[in-house]
Write a protein that binds this DNA or RNA. Sequence first.
DNA 1: CGCGATTCCTGGTCGC
DNA 2: TGCGACCAGGAATCGC
Length: 316
Amino acid sequence: MPELPEVEVVRAGVEPAVTGALVAGVEIFDERSLRRHDRRTGSFTEQLTGRRILGAVRRGKFLWLPLDSGRALVVHLGMSGQVLLRTPGSAIDRHLRIRLCLESVSPQVLPPTAWPDDGAAGELWFDFVDQRVFGSLVIDNMVPTTDGAAGGFAGSGAGPWSALVPSQVAHISRDPIDPAFSQSAFFAGLARKKTGIKRALLDQTLISGIGNIYADEALFAAGLHYKTPTASLSPAQAAELLAALRAILQRALGEGGTSFDSQYVNVNGQSGYFAHSLEVYGRQGTPCSRCGTTLVRESFMNRGSHLCPSCQVVTS
DNA sequence: CGCGATTCCTGGTCGC
DNA sequence: TGCGACCAGGAATCGC
């Protein structure tokens, strides 16, 4: 389940390989991965073929590649999406949905597993692989950010596209490790909403990049029950929750993200290690690391919520 | 207007 | 052993 750390691993992996590359061709193996593309502005293939990629940017779980046309290729991994960089001639993945054929890529910026060892220098496959087809690729127009800051995290890249964001991403809030994230707006939003804290964390409009795994982990770290009304949080509790979110996202990022199986991998097909560091997610039936109480898994919002019934109780 | 339920989708797993 | 039911969940959309 790719969340912010997993998407950032993908962004950092593709950035050096795609920046400056020319899209020489597009192969569509499954139209469902283009479900969110608005065809009224032109076909996906027409708007991508012949364009040059200028960088790789991420906000929350959304990734986009600005194009020299002024638009951007927006990538969302959904539940099971992967981006794999491959040398032409590699075996076809079972769940390959869309392939971009890239040209004029300097061999020295390719990941080691994509180094060409024959006459294919400068050519690279950008494979969008997605088993459950919840992810999507779209070509979108760019709009200015409301605060004038960068649209998202772009690594070492910058350009005229920096203070722009794809229109399909504009309604998503900044994520908590974005330098332009507004703490005051986050706290004000918590005070204004009339809903439970986990629902607010998963709703990407107040804060972005958080999914089911890191929501459960952060709520455990902050000692909060998932149903705690957002408006009931004290300033100290809200600050502690935000600090917990940042700490967990940064730690997961440092470990290459969370992988349970081959469903989430980096652009070279390798798994991250954060699954070993999870305190509550998937650990129902085992003792809480803080108090020893048996952890439980409850059904909430049609998904699992993992928590310690002693450390995490509704306070109001 | 905003919250919360529904929908999209596949493959692994479980029970009969 | 085989087959059907069920579960995992990000985010747009719809209904109330």
